[in-house]
Nucleic acid binder design. Sequence first.
DNA 1: CCTAAACTAACAGGCGTTAGTTTCCCTACC
DNA 2: GGTAGGGAAACTAACGCCTGTTAGTTTAGG
Lengths: 198, 198
Amino acid sequence: MARIKSTEQNSRKDIITTQASILFRQKGYRATSMRDLAEKVGVEAASLYNHISSKEELLRDICFKVGDDFTNHLEALEKLKQPAILKIEAIIRFHIKMMLQRFEEVHVSNHDWHHLKEPYHTDFLNRRREYEKRFGSIIEKGVVKKEIRKVNPYIAVLTILSAVRGIEYWHRHKKNVTAAELENNMVQHLILGIKTIE
Amino acid sequence: MARIKSTEQNSRKDIITTQASILFRQKGYRATSMRDLAEKVGVEAASLYNHISSKEELLRDICFKVGDDFTNHLEALEKLKQPAILKIEAIIRFHIKMMLQRFEEVHVSNHDWHHLKEPYHTDFLNRRREYEKRFGSIIEKGVVKKEIRKVNPYIAVLTILSAVRGIEYWHRHKKNVTAAELENNMVQHLILGIKTIE
DNA sequence: CCTAAACTAACAGGCGTTAGTTTCCCTACC
DNA sequence: GGTAGGGAAACTAACGCCTGTTAGTTTAGG
């Protein structure tokens, strides 16, 4: 009957959510059972329900926390007066850093959000579309100011966000490539691909 | 007791596999039950086992068929004498076309391969690594010949393949953007991002 | 008429979750 | 400074449902 060790920063629920992120990332949401999670946390499955209301709540917490962090970053960036190209670079770098520093959560958010039930499923999707739209309009402004080639903003957003998401397939090669090299190469690739040719 | 309608081109197993692709793509491999699949095919769940040996066999068939098609295309390309940059463009265009024309299969192959059991799981992973390695060495040759900027070939492969895979998130916007526009924009973005600046 | 392909019935195990009970730790009082 | 009380957090047991798959039987098309 070992208790989950909580601290001032991390409630018991936080600890469960963190472990859930790890398992959901490894095996997928559907393939992870509450008994798997309980074992990982060091407790019986039923005990988890003292801290959470359902398995889906865990998924919800993970997905919306990550989503909000991306949205907040974008919002702060929108307020700055900067060339569009610099804003885009900042977004790319932020995505890469999130991918690397909070791998499990971001991965789960990217992969398993469609297991959210209504109304959360629709809500999540709408928020992501909103994010893409706002990212797109930054690119659009760059095109108007001729910082950026005449590209379709929506396709550029799709290309950039997809490329960055692919970092999840990188983790296992850490030895050969440093995080800084990965970040700089990818930023260059994605920025030079849309920048106006001087 | 309606029979599955087979034709000369499509065996009953082919039909089951096709329907499985659709369901696996919609709901994910784990979330799709054999009873779901049976209903889609118009038959009882047990009847499926006259044509397949297990649920995993379906996943296996889908993943390796897609994988082989990509590998075969790359192999044919390697034999041609062409500038690296043209080969890379051809690879990108092939990936985009596969994504669009065989959406379900490719999506399942990308997302659910990790539910393959051993030894297939390892086999699949090795084949994909081999593919990426060979793609990488095409880029490497381009760098040597100064067709391509000094980039890390592995990161360029990761960026390109990830970007292209992201097309799966596009499908629902078909109305605003044509397939040709998507293809050309993405190819430009990814090629100009690594091409030597003249 | 024979065999491929459908059916019904069922198994054994896993799932998320609930009910009811016990244990532990913190707090407050003597 | 020990100790009673109370609530948080663990436990065991079980429910009802779903899972992939098998066995045995019936049906129907070439």
